[in-house]
Design a protein around this nucleic acid. Structure first.
Length: 386
DNA sequence: CGCACCGGGTTCTGCCATCTGC
DNA sequence: GCAGATGGCAGAACCCGGTGCG
């Protein structure tokens, strides 16, 4: 690292201008006049020093270009990597190619997570094998890497990865659970073991506080209902739980029921988003003449309603009401809110055509798969034709 | 058979901030 | 003083079908 050929000190005008600019920025941000002056007076010297000590590695840039890497993007993301004297881009490319990754995928991986090229062969092989304990094929892993290179390459600690897998298994998660987890939220596995443990302990503590009896069962249930939970901060999850409890005035057993059940799915929403949705739904329902108890009941029975953004939810409700469905019916079968406004609109139109009577038949028909709905419509229109 | 109930599947990265260790 | 490692954040639903009951 220390030994850098003098040749590389030869720099383009562009680079020195960039560096000069960044010094200017640093200068502006400094409050101390004294420091500023010092920096100013020595900046020329400093630049020279900097430029000769920390130039980008030209042969590395060349290699990256040959690999089709978007060097601009890489530079923006992890500029330090481009200055390293020793990197393993060719080894990485070979390795990934051997696993079935296309040239394009490899380039994209390096462009988006340049540090990948600093990993050694042994490291990559070992890490890959650990992932292969969970995935059946290399192709699956390549897909994940293409989606999220950072998840695989961000940590250099294979021991930690191994411990994480053991930890998750010790929670009672089976191979299928792990597979789902690693597919969906791969970052979980590069969390430090400690961080994962903290979330698990946090969940257990809450559960026990609320009078729960089998914490292991509970944690397993929460994770399998919400695969993102382990990549959220306990701070976020705690704030959401506290907010829900306080604003709905939930009893311990109500909260417990919520967390054990469908509530787990919304725990990882950002705090502000959850609050915003909560408030706007409350307002909307009040304006439709609902009691606060209706609101509470809706959230307890169908917390996923808080997942839906204010505009979407509002127009969805309007669409249902306009179609001749009552708020009371929606509150009884909130699952209809699962479906897209577009889907609902289309179904309402079709049902209108066959003069479907929601008062008599209820609204369950809206909560059915496309196939079942179509079959039902066909039958209904046949009978009205007669 | 038809329906309601219920649970499951899919999905989520790319960036910045902050420490740590050399 | 750097790059590396790790934590944390914003963003925002929709759909399907097994099954058991009347």
């Amino acid at each position: 690292m220390a030994a850098i050929p003098g040749v590389r000190a030869f720099l383009s005008l562009h680079q020195s201008v960039t560096l000069w600019h960044s010094f200017g920025l640093v200068k502006v941000q400094l409050r101390s006049a004294c420091l500023t002056r010092r920096l100013c007076s020595t900046s020329t010297k400093n630049d020279d020093l900097k430029l000769s000590v920390n130039p980008e590695n030209e042969s590395l840039l060349e290699n990256l270009n040959l690999l089709g890497v978007d060097v601009k993007m890489a530079r923006r993301r992890q500029p330090g990597v481009l200055r390293k004297a020793f990197t393993n881009e060719q080894g990485l490319a070979q390795f990934l190619q051997g696993k079935g990754a296309s040239r394009k995928v490899i380039a994209s991986i390096i462009s988006r997570y340049p540090r990948a090229i600093t990993r050694s062969m042994e490291h990559m092989e070992q890490r890959w094998d650990l992932w292969r304990n969970i995935f059946k094929t290399d192709a699956e892993i390549v897909t994940i890497l293409d989606r999220s290179p950072e998840s695989f390459f961000r940590s250099s600690d294979n021991g930690n990865l191994e411990k994480n897998i053991a930890f998750l298994i010790s929670l009672g998660l089976n191979t299928k659970d792990l597979h789902r987890l690693l597919t969906t939220a791969p970052r979980t596995f590069s969390n430090s073991l400690e961080l994962n443990r903290q979330m698990v302990e946090f969940l257990e503590d809450i559960y026990l506080e609320l009078g729960g009896k089998s914490p292991e069962q509970f944690v397993k249930a929460v994770i399998s209902r919400n695969l993102y939970i382990l990549i959220r901060s306990t701070k976020r999850v705690k704030a959401n739980i506290d907010n829900l409890r306080a604003s709905l005035k939930l009893s311990d057993s109500e909260l417990l029921g919520l967390l054990q059940g469908p509530g787990a799915e919304i725990l990882d929403l950002s705090n502000e988003y959850l609050k915003k949705n909560f408030n706007s739904l409350q307002q909307k329902m009040a304006s439709l003449g609902c009691q606060n108890s209706d609101f509470k009941k809706l959230i307890i029975s169908y917390p996923m309603v808080l997942y839906i953004g204010p505009d979407t939810l509002s127009s969805k409700l309007d669409c249902l009401l306009k179609g001749g469905i009552t708020m009371k019916q929606i509150l009884e079968k909130p699952k209809v809110l699962d479906y897209s406004t577009q889907n609902i609109t289309g179904r309402l139109e079709e049902l209108q055509k066959v003069r479907y009577d929601f008062r008599k038949n209820g609204i369950n028909i809206l909560d059915s798969s496309r196939k079942r709905f179509a079959a039902k419509i066909e039958k209904l229109s046949a009978s009205t034709d007669e």
